[in-house]
Design a protein around this nucleic acid. Structure first.
Length: 207
DNA sequence: TTGAGGATTCTC
DNA sequence: AGAATCCTCAAA
C-alpha cells in the first residue's frame, strides 16, 4: 500500500501573474489524476505570451492555444511532434503558462506503469513532459480543464515548500527565446528530465 | 491549399 | 543520428 497523502487545493492567486514568477512556485506541489495517480512537480518551464517568441501564444490566441488565454489554474494541453502530449498550468498573465516537465511519482504507480509499457524504472515514469502526460493519462481532451476545482486532475499542496535554491537553466527544445533562464528544477532530484542531446553547432562542454 | 516546422521520445 | 507521426499556422 502507498501511504495516504494529505494535501490541500492550491490558491488561484499563486498563479498570478507572470509565468516566470509562478513557475518556481510550482516546484514541490503535487499533480493528482485518475486512478490515484499523484506526482510531485520537480521540473517546470515558463512561457510568457506576447513577450516570449518561444511560446505557442506569442502571436496571439488560436484554436490550439485558446486555453492559455483563459482562466489561471486551467490546463493547456498540446500535441507535440504528432506523438506526445504536454501539460501546462495556465497563469493569469495573458497567454502565460507553465509547462510541467517532470514529476516524481508518489502514488498510483501501478496505473502509471501500465500507461508506460517498456518503462523500466519508476524513476523514468514521469521524467519528461511527454512521458508524464502519458503516465498521468493526460491528453488533448483535458485541455482547458480546471486544476483547482473538483475535476479529475488537481494541483495540490501537501505542505512541502518550493526549494529555496532551485536550479535555473535555459529552456529545452526551443529555437527562439533561448537566452531566457526560464527552466527551474528541484536540485538533486533524480526524476528531472535528461539534458537535450548536444547539438552539432554548439560548442562542447569544456572540461 | 500547401508545406515547413515543431515546448519529444525511442531505437539504432 | 534518425525515425515516428500529425497537427498547426502562415503564406500563397
Amino acid at each position: 500500500m502507498e501511504p495516504a497523502i494529505d494535501a490541500a487545493p492550491v490558491a488561484r492567486s499563486l498563479l498570478e501573474p507572470h509565468a516566470a514568477q509562478v513557475a518556481p512556485r510550482l516546484l514541490n506541489l503535487l499533480l493528482a489524476g485518475a486512478d490515484g495517480r499523484i506526482g510531485r512537480i520537480v521540473e517546470v518551464e515558463a512561457y510568457a505570451g506576447a513577450e516570449d517568441p518561444a511560446a505557442h501564444s506569442y502571436r496571439g490566441a488560436t484554436a490550439r492555444n485558446a486555453s492559455m488565454f483563459g482562466p489561471a489554474g486551467h490546463l493547456y494541453v498540446y500535441l507535440s511532434h504528432g506523438i506526445h502530449h504536454c501539460a501546462n498550468v495556465v497563469c493569469s498573465g495573458p497567454g502565460h503558462g507553465v509547462l510541467i516537465r517532470a514529476l516524481r511519482p508518489l502514488a498510483g504507480l501501478t496505473a502509471m506503469r501500465a500507461a508506460r509499457p517498456g518503462c523500466l524504472r519508476d524513476l523514468d515514469l514521469c521524467r519528461g513532459p511527454g512521458r508524464l502526460a502519458r503516465a498521468m493519462a493526460i491528453d488533448r481532451r483535458h485541455d482547458g480543464l480546471d486544476l483547482l476545482g473538483d475535476g479529475p486532475y488537481r494541483l495540490l499542496d501537501d505542505g512541502t515548500p518550493p526549494p529555496t535554491d532551485p536550479e535555473t537553466t535555459p529552456r529545452i527544445g526551443i529555437s527562439r527565446g533561448t537566452e531566457k533562464q526560464w527552466r527551474w528544477s528541484v536540485p538533486d532530484e533524480p526524476c528531472r528530465s535528461r539534458q537535450p542531446r548536444r547539438s552539432r553547432s554548439s560548442p562542447p562542454c569544456s572540461a
